[in-house]
Each structure stands twice: as structure tokens, then as C-alpha cells.
């Protein structure tokens, strides 16, 4: 992994010899990669290459279904309020999946707001963490909605049902929901695949703004999107990590012929 060494940003997460199994099927094969703090890393690859599977490991989504198994290490360098850094193995059996989901938020492929009010959607994660006071909730909800560039559009209708929003607004609401809890990382699983081009460009702008505050991992089908928003790109194929490097390097001067073929659209 040549180029990443010059990056001065500390490591936020890393996977080491990491594998994932759906029953006996190995969907992620022995992947190793570092993820820099406050950087955007894109995971690309053809359908079924394991990129979404890998992403969902970060907040232990696979624990919801029987028969799944993790192997190897997936480390989160968790920063305490006092500044000390503590490595946590996300997939270790003794690690609470709930704790990992509280530290690492996720934005899904299809906007999936709860059928509750806009306010309650954003406040839900905070309520789970025991934030009860109305004034603190309002403050944090506003901050999160501003962070998701949605505040101006919804500030007058916070008590209304979130299903009244457009698809793009719903997705930004889901981003606000993920941001409200001040996660250490945010996972995006093809966040714009269900949106029109205008809504897509808004989400991309948003991701661009967010990189200063939080570490981002984004799975995308869209190579232009990966090139536009990410600092690093990981290319996966058949469960293996084929190439991982700075985005500019991957797109302009890929190290592997397979990467080059995929990027130039010869398969996938």
C-alpha cells in the first residue's frame, strides 16, 4: 500500500486479514486496508463483489441474521473525550454490536426514514443514548439538520411526518439522523442509487462538506461519484481487495490490469 504512508492523518480504522462468511459462502476474502481519519474512502466494484457486505461489517449489521461469521480483525481506533485513542476490534465476539452501531452510523441505499415526524427521526438516536431534555434534543437536531443541509427546507415543519419529504430530502434526513449522534464514522451504502441527478449532486456536496468532521466510507456503483467525492478508493472483485490507493492514483494510473479494465468500463 504505497502512497498512504505520506498521509499525515491518523488511522481511524483498519481491517487486517478480514473475511466474512454467509454460511459456507465466503463473501469477503482476506481483505486488509487502512482507513484514515476524516478522509472519504470509496469502495467500488461490480455487483456481488462484497463491497456492501464489507461495509455492513463495520456496524455489525450481519449480526441481525443467523449463519453469518466474521474472521480476522476489523479495528476501530476509538477516540475518547479526553483525547486518548483506544483500538476496538469491531467484530470480536466480546464487542457489543450495539456499541459499534452507536459509534459508527449508517446511511442506506434507499432512504429509510421512520414513519415518524422529521424531528423524531433525527432525535431517535439521541433518545437511545439517553438524551431526554427537550432543549438539548432541539439543539442537536438543529445542528444535525444543518449539517445535512436540510435545516432551511424543514425548519418550519419539524412535527410533520417524514414521508411528506421528497426522496432526496428523505435521504438527507437519514444522513442527519446518522450525524445527530456524532458518530466516529459514517457508512454510506450506495446512498444515491435511488435518487435523481439533482438530489444526487446535493448528497455528493454534502459528503464533501462532511469530510472535515467525520470519517466516511462509501460504497458506490458509480465510478464518477467515487472519483468526485473520495480521497481513497478500494476496488473489490469477487470478495477480494484488488487495489487500494489514493483515488487519483487508482483512476489515473491503476496498479492492476483488472482495475484498469473495470474503470474503463470493460466489465461490471
Amino acid at each position: 500500500m504505497p502512497d498512504t504512508q505520506i498521509d499525515t492523518r491518523p488511522l481511524k480504522a483498519e481491517v487486517k486479514n478480514f473475511s466474512f462468511f454467509y454460511g459456507s459462502f465466503q463473501a469477503v476474502k482476506n481483505v486488509s486496508a487502512p482507513f484514515r481519519e476524516k478522509a472519504v474512502t470509496a469502495i467500488i466494484g461490480p455487483s456481488g463483489c462484497g463491497k456492501t457486505t464489507l461495509l455492513r461489517c463495520f456496524n455489525r449489521m450481519h449480526d441481525l441474521y443467523p449463519g453469518n461469521r466474521y474472521a480476522g480483525e476489523m479495528i476501530l481506533h476509538s477516540r475518547s473525550p479526553d483525547g486518548s485513542v483506544r483500538p476496538l476490534n469491531i467484530v470480536h465476539p466480546s464487542t457489543s454490536p450495539i456499541e459499534m452501531r452507536m459509534r459508527i452510523s449508517m446511511v442506506f441505499q434507499k432512504p429509510n426514514p421512520f414513519p415518524k415526524s422529521i424531528f423524531e427521526n433525527v432525535a431517535y438516536g439521541l433518545r437511545l443514548r439517553g438524551v431526554g431534555s427537550r432543549s438539548e434534543l432541539s439543539g442537536r437536531v438543529e445542528t444535525a439538520l444543518r449539517g445535512a443541509a436540510l435545516w432551511d427546507e424543514v425548519k418550519d415543519r419539524l412535527p410533520q411526518n417524514a414521508y411528506g419529504l421528497s426522496g432526496g430530502q428523505q435521504q438527507r434526513l437519514c444522513i442527519a439522523r446518522a450525524l445527530a449522534v456524532e458518530p466516529e464514522m459514517v457508512l454510506f451504502d450506495e446512498p444515491t442509487s435511488a435518487l435523481d441527478p439533482i438530489a444526487t449532486s446535493k448528497i455528493e456536496e454534502l459528503i464533501d462538506d462532511l469530510r472535515e468532521r467525520v470519517t466516511i466510507l462509501i460504497v458506490t456503483h458509480n465510478m464518477q461519484q467515487a472519483a468526485r467525492v473520495s480521497d481513497y478508493t478500494a476496488f473489490m472483485y469477487l470478495g477480494e481487495l484488488v487495489e487500494y490507493d489514493r483515488t487519483a492514483k487508482v483512476f489515473q494510473n491503476p496498479g492492476k490490469p483488472l482495475t484498469e479494465q473495470y474503470i474503463s468500463g470493460r466489465f461490471g
Binding site: R103, L128, V131, G139, R140, T143
Partner: peptide
């Protein structure tokens, strides 16, 4: 985001263990 003295994520860890 410049918010609050106790970060909610630290509350969370306690909450997660308390719930079990």
C-alpha cells in the same frame, strides 16, 4: 460540531451494557 460536555457516544456505551 461543538456540542455538549459529555459526548452522547460515551453515554451510549453505558446504556448498551445497562440494557442487557
Amino acid at each position: 460540531m461543538t456540542q455538549a460536555a459529555i459526548s452522547p457516544k460515551e453515554l451510549s456505551v453505558q446504556a448498551a451494557t445497562r440494557l442487557r
